[in-house]
Structure formats: structure tokens, C-alpha cells
Amino acid sequence: MIEAVLPQASLLKKIIEAIKELVSEANFDFSETGIRLQAMDKSHIALSFLHLRNDGFSEYRCDRSQTLGINLESFSKVLKCAANDDQVQIKATDKAESLSISFESTAKDRVSEFNVKLMDIDIDSVDVPDMDYQATVNMSSQEFARIVRDMMTIGEAITIDATKQGVKFSTSGDAGEGNILLRHRKTIDEEDGPSSTSVEINEPVSHSLALKFLANFAKAAPLADRVSINLIEDAPVMFEFKISDMGHIRFYLAPQIEE
């Protein structure tokens, strides 16, 4: 038996919106400690990873570990039937064939219940190692979304250069080229404002990435004020959006290399 309650449906809506473009179907692994999801896009170049800890839910019960395969488009459609402030409960019995999702209004005078069919999803899982990144950029997630949007008007790829001075995003295309530099601020305090950027760096590092994936990652911006971009030579770039006090979404993207 699985039962998880979130006080606000908006959080679950944002989580599913952040990954549904990249992944159409995914396995949600429920265990005593919380929920995990790992899924790759069709081309296996981007990996989405979600972790929600049990203590972030207002109620959480998982009697035995269980994997639920869910079509994210269907999940998203059902979540659109919830008001943002509704309490949401998800529930599945052992060996269930569907996931029960119910919404309760703040006044507790309206309760709706939906069932989404579960599916067997055969996916390749990867073992993501803990890595010592050479550079970590911490910046406003809104700023990140804006840069991605701006760069897409010119090119299809973006180069991220992290140095002690800051982080530079650049692109080029048939129409021309452009770059945006965010200077490093030593401390991110209120004086600097929430839009400031920090770059923790051991060694300068540069990667080129396909912008279309970053546009998908930027859909996680409503979940978190900040995003961290973690770079290391010869490995996927990791983008992390923290989900307030309960976990995170991480996206790993393989860099473009010259053939």
C-alpha cells in the first residue's frame, strides 16, 4: 500500500510539467524513504532524476517498495483538474493496476478522484556516480530560463564557459552570434539581490550543449528560485533544481563533442 499526501497540488503539477516534455513514460520508485524517478529522453542524451523525501509530504506511507509505471501526459492531464491550493493524495494498493489521485479543496467541501492506469515500462537505468565537479555555477532559475530563450533566437547549441570571473553563455547561428556574461559575486546576500550569480571553481571548464534540452530543463524554473549548473571535463553537465525542503530534480546532459 502506497499513500502520499501533499498540501498543495501546485507542487506536483510543477514537478510533472518539468519532466513531461523530456520523458513520456516513467517509473516512479516508491520506498519507505520517499519517491525516486530516473528516466532518459528518447535519444538517451539527457537524464532526468527526481528525488522526493518522505518527510516532505504531509502524510507518507509505503509498506513495501513498489515501482509504478506512469504515462506523464495522462498524469499531467489529471493534475490540471486540481486547483493549485487543493490537497492532493496519491494512492495505490499492492499490485494495483491504476494509481488513484484525489484532490480536496481548501474548504474541504469538494473532493474529486481520478484513476490513471499503470503500465509496465521497460527502461535502461544508469548508475549515476557522485562526482567532484570542476565548476559549480549557482544562479537565478528565471535568469537561466531567460538566457536559454534568448540564445535560442540565434543558435541551436550553447557553450557554457565557467571561469573565476564568472560564467559566459554563447551561441552562434546563420543569423549571427551572441554571448551573455554573468559576473561572479562572492557572496549572494540580499544586497546583491536574488539575481546574482556565483561560480565555485577548481579549474575553468567549458562545454557545448544542445539548447533544445536546456529549454526543457528551464521548465523546472517554477520549482526553485535557483539552479546550479555543475560542470566537469568529459562528463554530462548536471543541472539541479532544489524542491523546497523535500528533494530535487536533476538533469544530466551529454555535452556536444566534435566528431
Binding site: I45, L47, D124, D127, V128, A254, Q256, I257, E259
Partner: peptide
Amino acid sequence: RNCQRQIVEYFGEV
């Protein structure tokens, strides 16, 4: 020409 290796080429398969 630019190309990308798949994620599994960086991280091992489970």
C-alpha cells in the same frame, strides 16, 4: 560535426 555520446557511455548501466 558535433555529436553527443549517450548517457550510458558516461555512467554505467545498472
